[in-house]
Simulated scan of single mutants.
Amino acid sequence: MSLLKQTTYQSFTETTAKELALALNLFSDNPELSCKEIGDGNLNLVFHIVDEKNGKGVIIKQALPYAKVVGESWPLTLKRAKIEADALKIFGSIAPNYVPEVYYTNDVLAVTVMEDLSHLLIARKGFIKGETYPLLSQHLGEYLARTLFFTSDYGLSPSVKKEQVQQFINPELCKITEDLIFTDPFYDAETNEFEAGLRAAVEDLWKDGELKFHVNVLKKSFLTEAEVLLHGDLHTGSIFADNSATKVIDPEFAFYGPAGFDIGQVFANLLFQVIVNEQNQALFIKHLETVWNVFEDQFTHLWNTENKENLAQSSAFLHYNLAKFFEDALGFAGCELIRRTIGLAHVADLDSIVEEQTRLAAKRKSLELGGILIKQRKEIKDLGAFIGTVKGVL
């Protein structure tokens, strides 16, 4: 039976991935296809297929019914593949310059076939290698402004917004976020992983009742505020880039939530480079500033020109929303800094530091800054205060 007519799920191999590419007629006549499984994440298979005759390539991504990091004892819904594909299509229609093109999707096989981005590099890997990606922060500011505005109540009609909220109900993957970002790092959970040299700082964090109160407030926002369609996992490992292009991938955690969450994820993952990259510290601080400044400018323009809610077309209400987004982003960034330091899923920005004391010092700064951003997010009123807070920890 042709894979295009398959009625039951089967996990792909390099052979079946090539079969699908051929069945979709994505290449020239009689292509010479090579295929390599390149996935390095925990939830999916990713195949890079290239026609050796002309170098044209595609990516085939398939969701697995379990988490690779744990195995079949951690089952996962295959519905996330449809959520990811639908999110890519919506984000691609809103911000086409910053999202890979989708060629084909199959809900039964949990497969998405999309544009080959192998000429670009995962931004986190590039940063660690010394790349600085001068346009990345401008592109991310524009991506955030467009996706967060055009999926909100102010960029959509009420009926379409509510239909999309329903379409992107994503309980299984949201539960992963709820646990790994907002719960487990703040008590002695089995999923936590950290070095012995951090034990004292971590135990102080676990004892901090004020911190845990504020994390609960942020978690409540994540659970209850369906403001916009979020990417849901917008770290530098979900961004391909070079010096002129930026592409956002992997929105399988997409759902309707608070706008500040995606912004905060971007903030935090740039902050890791601010913390560890002394040579380019000023440059990454500039990246932080540019993300917010471009986002604020672009969102303001869209608010004033594309707003579908007549009563909302006031500068006071716009500034209220922007202030809320900024405050939320700081808090969510703080949670991301902490969970990536002591939780289940770390970042190479920190873990790849070879010298132990240097690595531990960077991780302590990440924990300290995370706690400050969570607890003082209401007092940090603007970008200048944010940058000043960051510099105070460095």
Rank of each mutant, 00 (worst) to 15 (best):
G126W: 01
G126M: 03
F127E: 05
F127P: 04
F127H: 06
F127G: 04
F127D: 04
F127R: 00
I128S: 03
I128H: 07
I128Q: 04
I128T: 11
K129Q: 10
K129I: 00
K129H: 09
G130Q: 03
G130Y: 01
G130S: 06
G130F: 06
E131I: 05
E131V: 02
E131T: 05
E131F: 07
E131G: 06
T132R: 13
T132I: 13
Y133S: 00
Y133K: 00
P134S: 04
P134H: 07
L135M: 13
L135H: 14
L135D: 08
L135Q: 08
L136N: 03
L136M: 13
L136F: 05
L136T: 04
S137K: 02
S137G: 11
Q138A: 03
H139A: 09
H139N: 10
H139S: 08
L140N: 01
G141H: 03
G141T: 04
G141C: 02
E142C: 03
E142R: 08
E142Q: 11
Y143G: 00
Y143V: 01
Y143L: 04
Y143R: 01
Y143W: 13
Y143M: 02
L144G: 00
L144N: 00
L144Q: 01
L144R: 01
L144C: 02
A145M: 10
A145W: 03
A145Q: 04
A145D: 03
A145K: 09
R146T: 06
T147E: 01
T147S: 01
T147G: 00
T147Y: 02
L148I: 11
L148H: 03
L148N: 05
L148T: 08
F149E: 06
F149D: 01
F149A: 06
F149M: 10
F149W: 10
F150Q: 07
F150D: 10
F150H: 14
F150N: 10
F150G: 07
F150Y: 15
T151W: 01
T151V: 06
T151F: 02
T151G: 09
S152I: 09
S152V: 08
S152C: 09
S152F: 05
S152A: 12
S152W: 01
D153W: 12
D153N: 14
D153A: 15
Y154L: 08
G155V: 05
G155Q: 04
G155W: 03
L156V: 12
S157R: 11
S157N: 15
S157M: 13
S157I: 13
S157F: 10
P158V: 11
P158T: 09
P158K: 07
P158C: 06
S159V: 15
S159A: 14
S159E: 15
S159F: 13
V160E: 14
V160A: 15
K161C: 07
K161N: 04
K161S: 05
K161F: 07
K161G: 06
K162E: 15
K162V: 08
K162G: 08
K162S: 15
E163R: 12
Q164Y: 14
Q164K: 15
Q164I: 11
Q164C: 10
V165I: 14
V165R: 05
V165A: 09
V165C: 12
